[in-house]
Design a protein around this nucleic acid. Structure first.
Length: 499
RNA sequence: GGUCCUGUGGCCGAGCGGCUAGGCAGAGGUCUGCAAAACCUUGUACGGCGGUUCAAAUCCGCCCGGGACCUCCA
């Protein structure tokens, strides 16, 4: 990018556009959150890491971001139309617990894993169950405008009627005529006037355990209305960014647009951003496909498809190594490679953090590379959040940092350029990509540390006395528990077993 | 069947008309008592066939392969 403006790919326009917020310096962003009826899995990691980085970068650009991400706790229908059962209610019935117990359990699990991935908490995390009134009010508006109808206690959005006034299918590129042909005729759809219509409010059957009173029936809100109602409440009828996985494009996001237009007459979102999917062995990961790996399993290595445990940061890094709009295929090899690469980068981060400028000469080449580092990273991020190129840039400068460290001097770079570079590197690593330096994976305790320190001292004494037999024996023992590294003047060790 | 995305060196993965992506693995070297780490050197890729252009991995067409959505899903 020649100019330093942020460009993002807008799914609605199918091209990159300059990002200009509606009310600078504020940016309003909504991201579809999880339905909390199961453990957080690998698939959840991708969108929330992606939009966490988007949010972090917007903050770096000086925007004040309000980031809203919902928790879906009223459940969507398990199957289509009348035969469906609320997902959360179903899980609750199977587990013989209160629905809200399910919600609580998996919300906590989700939060725990998001924290491990170092995703910042959203500014507001509204629950669907806490916004039944807002959803009912929105449905009333849609009804009043004639874009919905009541049918046996349920309310449906009238797509055909809506299409007379507004386009339907713009976001996903659907043509309703084609959709008609491709819609399967399911039993029990008689409540709908048209197969394309979707539920705004569903009357609850007697055995349905989650339901709320409404002007139409005791029931529960439809599949898509919560996002429309809650985004409008907290971000306004039009807001800047709506994010989510590509799989939500149709029908979920398409319906959100229709609902907002139907209720407020305004298209709700200015920039639609969609992350691509994660596949496992080339196949989409899905609850129904039974091939998903939970984050707990990934971090513990406890899953048949996993060769070992992977750290949350390795996962985060591996996802940021690819562009968010391209698919990622999960593999052990891929994660292992990412883990190694991430550890190298982290080592550089740790070294650089403690490093101070000390030099005498300026080398034009080094000076140039280091002083253009920040701009190159900014350019990459401005180019539709290209984290892969940012990481590439970080590797390009890594060898300089390592050389500075080995020589003990920051030779070849001016003080000003070094400090600018250092700050930028720390900023991109920690604040924008949201990476954390290698956490000590293994639990440590003081006694253990003291013991290791003593053995390391003993080994160094042996080395001084050229008693290499003893030194090697000590090294062999130590390397069963930690990783040793001899530097010029001292020995450092990490809580990592030799592989 | 419809809509859309995609095919890059051993593997992963950027790239949006001309200029080295990067990582992992491999090979050679420097340093080191050994080990580890680090540093240096090394590989010249773009599914196939045509076309546009002075110039194409990058644009267009066709063919072949992979995937997503069209039903809850991040």
């Amino acid at each position: 990018m020649a100019d330093s403006q942020l460009y993002v790919y807008n799914t609605l326009k199918r091209e990159r556009e300059v990002f200009v917020p509606l009310h600078p310096p504020f940016v309003s962003m909504y991201v579809c959150g999880p339905t909390v009826y199961g453990n957080a899995h690998l698939g959840h990691a991708r969108p929330y890491i992606t939009f966490d980085v988007v949010c972090r970068y917007l903050m770096y650009l000086g925007y004040k971001v309000r980031y809203v991400r919902n928790i879906t706790d009223v459940g969507h229908l398990e199957n289509d139309a009348d035969v469906g059962e609320d997902k959360i209610a179903k899980k609750a019935r199977l587990d013989k617990v209160e629905p809200m117990e399910i919600v609580q359990r998996y919300t906590l699990d989700f939060h725990k894993n998001m924290a491990l991935l170092n995703n910042r908490s959203p500014s507001i995390e509204p629950c669907a169950s806490g916004h039944i009134i807002e959803q009912i009010q929105m449905i009333e508006k849609i009804l009043a405008h004639g874009y919905a109808y009541l049918s046996q206690g349920s309310v449906y959005f009238d797509v055909q009627r809506f299409e007379k006034d507004y386009p339907y299918g713009e976001l996903s590129g659907r043509v309703t005529e084609d959709l008609q042909h491709n819609t399967r005729e399911l039993d029990g759809q008689s409540e709908k006037h048209n197969p394309l219509d979707f539920a705004l409010w569903k009357k609850a059957s007697p055995e349905h355990i989650m339901h709320w009173p409404s002007p139409w029936s005791d029931g529960f809100p439809g599949w898509h209305i919560e996002c429309s109602a809650m985004s409008a409440k907290y971000l306004g009828e039009t807001f800047d960014i709506h994010g989510g996985g590509m799989d939500l494009l149709f029908p979920h996001h398409e319906c959100e647009i229709a609902q907002s237009l139907g209720a407020n007459g305004i298209s709700p979102v200015r920039y639609w951003m969609h992350n691509n999917m994660l596949t496992i062995n080339g196949q989409k990961m899905g609850k129904s496909l039974n091939n998903f790996i939970t984050l707990d399993e990934l971090f513990s290595g406890n899953h048949p498809l996993l060769e070992k445990a992977y750290s949350p940061m390795a996962l985060r890094f591996s996802m940021l190594q690819a562009h968010y709009r391209n698919p990622i295929d999960f593999s052990n090899k891929g994660l292992e490679d990412a883990e190694k690469a991430y550890e190298k980068l982290s080592a550089v981060y740790v070294l650089l953090k403690e490093m101070n400028w000390a030099g005498t000469t300026v080398n034009t080449e080094i000076e140039k590379v280091l002083s253009s580092f920040e701009k190159e990273c900014v350019d990459a991020m401005n180019d539709d959040i290209n984290t892969a190129v940012v990481i590439s840039n970080m590797f390009k400068v890594s060898s300089y940092v390592n050389q500075f460290y080995s020589s003990g001097k920051t030779e070849g770079v001016s003080k000003e350029a070094f400090e600018k570079f250092k700050n930028a590197y720390l900023l991109f690593y920690r604040d924008i990509l949201g990476l954390l330096p290698d956490q000590q994976m293994e639990r440590s305790n003081e006694d253990f540390d003291k013991l290791v320190d003593s053995l390391v001292d003993l080994r160094n004494s042996a080395k001084k006395e050229k008693n290499f037999t003893l030194a090697d024996a000590l090294r062999n023992v130590l390397s069963q528990f930690v990783t040793l590294q001899d530097l010029a003047d001292k020995t450092i060790w990490k809580h990592e077993k030799k592989k």
